[in-house]
Write a protein that binds this DNA or RNA. Structure first.
Lengths: 206, 206
DNA sequence: CTTTAAAATGAACGATGGTTCATATGAATC
DNA sequence: GATTCATATGAACCATCGTTCATTTTAAAG
């Protein structure tokens, strides 16, 4: 019981706080994703979480930091999982590419609330660094899969850098379309995108 | 000279107004695209255009309508040009697809200021109808190119609806990446995307 | 029961910015 | 010069939040 006085961190606190921090983050995520960042008011978050505005400011420095905390919370294990997945490209690059695309879709669907924050108001300045980091790592990751595929001859020789950008853009574009317009099922979109990226539309051999 | 009293429309008014409407639209476009819709204040637009706030409200009902007027102004002949282009698919579907992609890139680069409005704050409710219309028409257009290509055997048989969505998403995704991160030259991106869509990454015949 | 301090409260503050309106300007007409 | 009316002005109005802070509540410790 001493701990509840000494450590303020959420997961160690034993029922001193009425409402847990993760509850607040979830509520805020829901609001940001449904109404947008600037349309979501601090009072809304407080009300929905069952707290007062004042309490919010005891836990988060301000609105921006609250938003950043959400994003950190939502992305914490994505990068490692993507990295692990890419390692398999030594064995079968095309299969790895397929897995990566389907993994991207899965994650995006699970985290679509968070993605709404990214796609809306896409230049909220404090989000830019995270977006940039995501782009760079994923582009390099796709490039590494392509290189391995070319080496093992399952992928035709091509400019890996340009192709990686195109593939990354295609994946993110499709996810964006899905999120904005709600068309198509994720699995069909994912499958049909891989089919396109893998074979192209042209008839006959390349 | 009588006209200047009788018709308030911009292009017919002979120097009664200090500042033309199209000047205002251009100034506002510049501000919206560089700072974002909600970060752009009506006073900013007024100042940069060399007008008072009051005058702005004599010309545009409110901020939203001003923004819509900009978009209408910027997109007025896009749709017809895209339609005309697609007609050529009877002759050579692959070439038409290539042209469509490069046309999309060209337009997007010329109108990138306007696109910033679309990609930022992407759910400004009053913009949704326009976005939706764009998606539907372009998807149908791509689908029609694919169908013609399949008929004339330059394109392999595939689910044209799914493929059209993937292709549309890839194009828009690539343009978005270009606008957000500024990576790559438009012509290289366009070329490399067509290469991907046309051939895919796989080695050997499909 | 008293003390203590973390946690919670919400009214009040202050800055912001879209919109309005009473007033002014100026060019055309008589 | 007087009249008229489109155009222009910008201070003022009003609503909207993000943020703060003096005060209260809660519950563990003594």
């Amino acid at each position: 019981m001493i701990q509840s006085r000494m450590v303020p961190w959420d997961h160690l606190t034993i029922m001193k706080r009425k409402v847990s921090n993760s509850k607040v983050l979830n509520v805020a995520l829901k609001l940001f994703s449904s109404k947008g960042y600037s349309e979501t008011k601090m009072v809304d978050i407080a009300r929905d979480a069952g707290l007062s505005v004042g309490s919010l400011y005891l836990r988060f420095k301000n609105k921006e930091e609250l938003c950043l905390d959400i994003i950190k919370d939502q992305t914490k294990d994505y990068f490692q999982r993507a990295e692990d997945l890419a390692k398999k490209a030594d064995t079968d690059a095309l299969k790895t590419l397929e897995d990566y695309i389907s993994f991207s879709f899965d994650c995006s669907m699970k985290k679509q609330q968070m993605l709404h924050i990214f796609y809306r108001e896409y230049r909220l300045p404090f989000i830019q660094p995270m977006r940039s980091h995501f782009f760079k790592t994923q582009q390099k990751l796709i490039e590494s899969i392509l290189k391995k595929g070319i080496k093992s001859k399952s992928i035709r020789p091509l400019n890996t850098k340009d192709a990686a950008i195109s593939i990354f853009a295609s994946i993110r574009g499709t996810i964006m379309i899905k999120l904005i317009y709600g068309v198509g099922s994720p699995s069909v979109l994912s499958k049909s995108l891989f089919d396109l990226i893998c074979h192209g539309v042209r008839k006959g051999k390349p």
